[in-house]
Write a protein that binds this DNA or RNA. Structure first.
Length: 307
DNA sequence: ACAAGAATAT
DNA sequence: GATATTCTTG
């Protein structure tokens, strides 16, 4: 019985998260030279980063290919007032623990069945993040979950040493909701089950997703809904010592940490998209909380120039 | 036509 | 290995 790491790791996993300042250089790397010019953003990427934190050593791409009009619409060639960010190829997205946490958080709030790339992307509210980015990450994340399921329900050896390879380090930085691993066919006794169809219907309105999340932002229970598809029932694994209801509540939803999008010193959030009404940003409850006191709001991959 | 998911490529 | 892109299917 060695669960001494249980209460320890989750208290440290948020400490290891780089400070919000680390996000700035990350975002800058996602700005293409063309985009920087278009937005009049000086490429003076100063790295005031003397911190011992493992900053994402994302090498800046030397150059980018010409804006290839792969849109199939030659008419888009003249993108005078159009956003170049849409046509230009962006550098590879680096999934930092912060981003991954938001990802897991969004998936946890939506539920496995509603956790589709588009919805996840919208809930994450990370400007610049594309559906493709989320889809790719989601694919890998599912493989990771599947791997864990196999190990946990292996039954062959409880002494399964959690040999976390470097590949799992990213995923290990964020707590995995228990219902991700344990497939409970039933447990549909949630009042939020009714919102599920709403989410499906909301896909025409982006703001709905935010509203849903805001509604259930504090309720963390097994949100399961019977799906109409013919998904085989997964044998519910017996109560393995993998699921902890306790830490989930604390890890995902920190009590008293309702950080709404308030007045901040950094107004780097530019919302070119049809900004949702009051509901926008209201659901931002639990951002990564630096132990040193570093809470931020909506993440953005496109920070304006620093003062 | 759009989106999700898997497969494949870089 | 991590992420992007392509391909197929719903």
């Amino acid at each position: 019985m060695r669960e001494e790491e249980e209460p320890s790791w989750f208290a440290r996993w948020e400490e290891q998260l780089p400070s919000p300042d680390e996000l700035m250089p990350l975002s800058q790397t996602l700005i293409t030279p063309d985009l920087a010019l278009a937005f009049d953003i000086p490429t003076t990427h100063h790295h005031p980063n003397p911190s011992p934190n493992p900053a994402p050593p994302v090498p800046h791409q030397s150059d980018f290919e010409s804006p290839d009009l792969t849109g199939g619409g030659g008419a888009a060639a003249a993108n005078g007032g159009d956003e170049p960010a849409r046509t230009l190829k962006r550098p590879r997205l680096v999934w930092t623990p912060q981003l991954h946490k938001r990802f897991v958080d969004a998936v946890a709030h939506l539920g496995i069945k509603n956790a589709v790339p588009k919805t996840i992307m919208q809930l994450m509210s990370v400007d610049g993040l594309t559906r493709e980015n989320v889809a790719s990450h989601l694919q890998k994340y599912r493989l990771y979950l599947k791997r864990m399921q196999g190990l946990s329900s292996s039954g062959g050896g409880p002494a399964s040493g959690v040999s976390h390879s470097a590949e799992d380090q990213l995923f290990a930085s964020a707590p995995v909701p228990h219902h991700f691993l344990t497939r409970g066919p039933a447990t549909a006794a949630d009042p939020f089950m009714s919102y599920a169809p709403a989410v499906a219907a909301l896909q025409h309105h982006q703001m709905a997703a935010a509203a849903v999340a805001a509604h259930q932002h504090q309720y963390y229970h097994q949100q399961q809904q019977q799906q109409q598809r013919h998904l085989g029932h997964f044998g519910s694994p017996p109560g393995n010592g993998f699921a902890d209801h306790g830490f989930l509540t604390r890890a995902v939803g920190q009590p008293g940490l309702h950080r709404m999008v308030g007045p901040g010193g950094v107004g780097i959030v530019q919302t070119p998209a049809p900004a949702p009404p009051s509901t926008a940003g209201s659901y931002v409850e639990d951002l990564e909380s630096g132990t040193g006191g570093g809470n931020r709001r909506v993440l953005t991959l496109f920070p304006t120039n620093e003062d």
